[in-house]
């Protein structure tokens, strides 16, 4: 198994071929903020919090969705990156209705955590107070769209791990929303096995157990990784670093 060597913030690291820059940063002891990424799910590069700079290019790259290549010089922080991350969190808060004090996820929310990490205490952008519904049609779970940040973890875990593909994104742009079935109430969608995986991986209080009250959600976000690992046992390689699909090729920017 070949090994890739690169530097992260000046620190030399070695990772197995196919590893992401996020894993490389982890190997260097750097914890990048992430929201859409979850170990065990296909990366999408949607939240843009994990963006890093690469020596020799001006474009920022999502660490979660970029494969490490030999000799890369990655820098994970700079005044600009800090400012962009902060602004991103502000945009998340302004986009939805996040009133943490009343949320099931209060205290166990990745959005809250990220806000603390990037030092965001208020939003410079006006809150949009969108009108969004709550779907409580499922016997055990519920979806409160007010807290959804469109990370699509639920879509991916249900499709890639559970194989049910109950969820998907509908509409586009700022009208985007998570839907189940043909935009039906969740409880009516026959494909749902009520496995609860989507609830476990949701970074916020959008998906929750119906019995959960304020601050009572205790998600299990390592679930996909563990399941994937178990499923691929015998095939996965050292330290569980292997990606679900080792990407071919790589190399320089050919457009």
């Amino acid at each position: 198994m070949s090994v890739i060597t690169l530097t992260v913030d000046g620190c030399d690291v070695a990772v197995p071929a196919g590893a992401s820059l996020l894993q490389a940063a982890g190997a260097a002891g750097v914890k990048l903020p992430t929201l859409c990424h979850l170990d065990g799910l296909t990366p999408v590069g949607a939240c843009r919090l994990c963006l890093v700079a690469l020596e020799g290019t001006t474009k920022l790259l999502p660490a979660c969705a970029t494969e490490a290549a030999e000799g890369m010089a990655v820098s994970t922080t700079s005044p600009e990156l800090r400012e962009y991350r902060r602004m991103a969190v502000e945009l998340f808060f302004a986009e939805g209705n996040h009133i943490c004090a009343y949320c099931v996820s209060n205290g166990a929310c990745e959005l809250q955590d990220v806000a603390v990490t990037v030092g965001m205490d208020h939003s410079r952008f006006p809150y949009r107070y969108p009108q969004r519904p709550v779907d409580a049609s499922h016997p055990w779970f519920a979806l409160d769209h007010n807290h959804c940040i469109l990370c699509t973890r639920c879509v991916r875990v249900c499709d890639e791990i559970e194989g049910a593909h109950v969820w998907d994104l509908a509409e586009r742009g700022s009208d985007c929303r998570i839907i189940s079935g043909l935009d039906q109430p969740w409880g009516e969608v026959e494909a749902c096995t009520s496995c609860g995986k989507c609830v476990e991986v949701c970074p916020t209080g959008a998906l929750f157990h119906r019995e959960d009250g304020t601050s009572e959600k205790h998600p299990h976000r390592e679930l996909p990784f563990q399941l994937r690992l178990a499923r691929e046992q015998g095939q996965w390689r050292n330290q569980g670093q292997a990606l679900p699909q080792a990407l071919e090729g790589g190399g320089e920017d050919p457009s």
Binding site: D159, D168, L169, A170, S180, L182, D183, V189
Partner: peptide
């Protein structure tokens, strides 16, 4: 109409939400 989306999903053996996701995109 919803009934048609359902028929399309069945016919192409696609998840319902995938069909609605595309139709609304």
């Amino acid at each position: 109409p919803t009934s048609a989306l359902l028929a399309v999903a069945r016919g192409l053996q696609l998840p319902l939400s995938r069909v609605y996701g595309v139709a609304s995109f």
